[in-house]
Structure formats: structure tokens, C-alpha cells
């Protein structure tokens, strides 16, 4: 059995007939050809697969593509405005909030969710807000600095 699914990924509608068991993360990587989103633990614990569904964060390894039918999905590739990086992307770069980079797409989208719900988080709130995303390189210090920096940039821009 296949089911027709239409998902707008980073502004571009993608239509496919998919097996119902197809995970959203595979739809994004294989059919939408946006490979920034990573599959890490594949058990909804590590957060590498975090994307935005209609603007709200979700773990795409624990969401079926059929569940996102009709939705708009934003991945790391869709966060920038052309060549203009999102403030979170700028801050992760400037504050060295990554080393190997595998967790970074999910980490940035989880940070996006945090700042959507709390525009000026404390350090403790940043650490709590990112607890569903694991980084095995940085020890998190520079990730926290990057999120604070981005929050300040975004507050100034308003």
C-alpha cells in the first residue's frame, strides 16, 4: 500500500506516493533531497533529526511522513534567507558552537523552538530547552553561548 503525500519542505512542495511506514526524516533526506537533517539515535532521544513542522519543533525520526501530509517543514537548509544566515546560524559560527557538526542542524532548530517560546532565556533555561539534543564534542558550553548571543541579536533586531 502506498499513500499520496504532499509536504512543503523549505518552501518547495514535494509530492510522492509513499509507504505508510516511511519516516519523515527519510522523506526529507531522500525525496526532498535536503540532507542537512541527520539520523542519529533513531529513537527520539538525541535530537539530530529535529525539524520544524508548521513552525513547531518535532523529531522527524519519530514522525511518519503521512502524519506530516499537508504540512510545511523547515530544515536547517530553510532557515537562512538565501545567502543571509539566520542569527542562530551566525551565532553558532561566531561562538564556535560546534565541532564535528553532526548535531548542529537539530541543535539549531531546537534552539529556534526555545527562542520561539522564550525570547530571552537564562543559561539554565537554555540548557533545559536543549535537553533533547545531544552533542558529543563541545561539552555544550559554546552552544549555550551561541544561543544567548543569537537571542541578543534577535532582540536588538526587533
Amino acid at each position: 500500500m502506498t499513500v499520496p503525500v504532499r509536504i512543503t519542505v523549505n518552501g518547495r512542495p514535494v509530492e510522492r506516493d509513499v509507504e505508510p511506514r516511511l519516516l519523515l526524516v527519510h522523506f526529507i533526506r531522500v525525496f526532498a533531497e535536503q540532507t542537512g537533517t541527520k539520523i542519529g539515535c533513531d529513537t527520539s532521544q538525541c535530537g539530530a533529526c529535529t525539524v520544524l513542522i508548521d513552525g513547531v519543533s518535532a523529531k522527524s525520526c519519530t514522525t511518519l511522513a503521512v502524519q506530516a501530509d499537508g504540512s510545511s517543514v523547515t530544515t536547517i537548509e530553510g532557515l537562512s534567507d538565501g545567502e543571509q544566515l539566520h542569527p542562530l546560524q551566525e551565532s553558532f559560527w561566531n561562538k564556535h558552537g560546534l565541532q564535528c557538526g553532526f548535531c548542529t542542524p537539530g541543535m539549531i532548530l531546537a534552539s529556534h523552538e526555545l527562542l520561539r517560546t522564550n525570547a530571552s532565556p537564562s543559561e539554565a533555561e537554555i540548557r533545559h530547552g536543549l535537553e533533547g539534543n545531544m552533542c558529543r564534542c563541545t561539552g555544550y558550553q559554546n552552544i549555550v553561548r551561541a544561543v544567548r548571543d543569537a537571542a541578543e541579536t534577535m532582540a536588538t533586531a526587533k
Binding site: 527520539s44 535530537g47 529535529t50 513547531v56 519543533s57 518535532a58 523529531k59 519519530t62 514522525t63 531546537a110 523552538e113 526555545l114 517560546t117 530547552g129 535537553e131 533533547g132 539534543n133
Partner: peptide, 9 residues
């Protein structure tokens, strides 16, 4: 429960 992304769904 879980983390923010889990709680959203």
C-alpha cells in the same frame, strides 16, 4: 516528559 520536541507531538 521527554524534551520540548517530544512534548510538541
Amino acid at each position: 516528559i521527554g524534551d520540548p520536541a517530544v512534548r510538541n507531538r
